[in-house]
């Protein structure tokens, strides 16, 4: 009993220490916004790595999710004779919820895990140590550009996801199921408010970008530098960031739409 209590305390302290380390890392890397001379090429490279390379998965899943939403919405709404509302339904659910959340989850799987593995591998092969010995802060050179790249990429990806999804919904709803295009758009525009829906969706995406990259980079930076440690850290990244996205999403939704 006492032993278990001690084990609990030990785990708790460890988690707390890790949390503390992650905050220190966050603080240090956010201080270094990439400076134009050295940092920009690094940032561009990372934007390519986490942003451009995630584009395909984002576009394809956005398209299909929009199409499915449209199809499902149609089959339900047609019973009430209000199939024109499909546009509004697709747009609202995408812009408010699905784009930031699904794009965030895909981003965690595609870019987050890759970030963790890459940084973990650098740690395991002593590249981080050797960089430190050369007199370059790895937080600045390795972590900060990745951080900013993730932070910039996810909102952009989420917006692309929304637009592609709505286009997919239009494709199914208008071209296939024969909803009148004018009312599809009109309903959508009447229902979607820029500040309340679009802006809040973007804010969500920014927060998720933050959360995912923070977790991914920290797990890589703090992993046990062995192949086992890296694989564990990668798994942790995907699990933790997915759970955090869903949890934070609820919190943000309550704050934004819940009239709290």
């Amino acid at each position: 009993m006492i032993d278990q209590l001690q084990a609990l305390g030990f785990t708790g302290l460890n988690k707390l220490a890790a949390l503390g380390r992650s905050f220190i890392m966050l603080f240090h890397s956010l201080c270094y916004f990439p400076n134009p001379r050295v940092g920009f090429p690094l940032l561009i490279k990372q934007l390519h790595f986490v942003g451009v390379l995630s584009l395909i998965i984002i576009v394809v899943s956005g398209l299909f999710i929009g199409m499915v939403l449209s199809l499902q919405g149609y089959t339900i709404l047609v019973d009430y004779g209000s199939e024109q509302a499909v546009g509004q339904m697709v747009a609202l659910s995408l812009v408010r919820e699905l784009s930031p959340v699904v794009a965030g989850l895909l981003f965690a799987g595609r870019a987050g895990s890759a970030l963790t593995a890459e940084i973990g591998l650098m740690k395991a092969t002593e590249q981080l140590s050797s960089m430190e010995m050369i007199g370059v802060d790895p937080l600045r050179r390795i972590v900060a550009p990745r951080f900013w790249a993730g932070f910039i990429s996810l909102p952009l990806l989420s917006m692309i996801f929304s637009v592609v999804g709505i286009w997919g919904g239009l494709l199914v709803g208008v071209d296939w199921l024969g909803i009148y295009e004018g009312s599809f758009w009109a309903n959508m525009q009447a229902a979607v408010d820029f500040r309340i829906d679009v802006l809040n969706g973007i804010i969500k995406a920014i927060v998720f970008g933050y959360v995912v990259t923070w977790i991914a980079v920290f797990q890589g930076y703090d992993c046990i530098p062995t192949s086992e440690g890296i694989s564990q850290a990668t798994t942790k990244t995907v699990v933790y960031s997915s759970l955090s996205i869903l949890g934070v999403d609820f919190l943000l939704t309550a704050l934004m739409f819940g009239d709290l």
Binding site: H48, G51, S153, W185, M188
Partner: peptide, 23 residues
């Protein structure tokens, strides 16, 4: 690629503003 990506992102924002929210 990065340039195109950022451009696409902002284009999406414009579409969201003008076409979707009808602002």
């Amino acid at each position: 690629g990065v340039g195109a990506f950022i451009f696409a992102g902002f284009l999406a924002l414009v579409v969201l503003i003008v076409n979707v929210s009808g602002l």
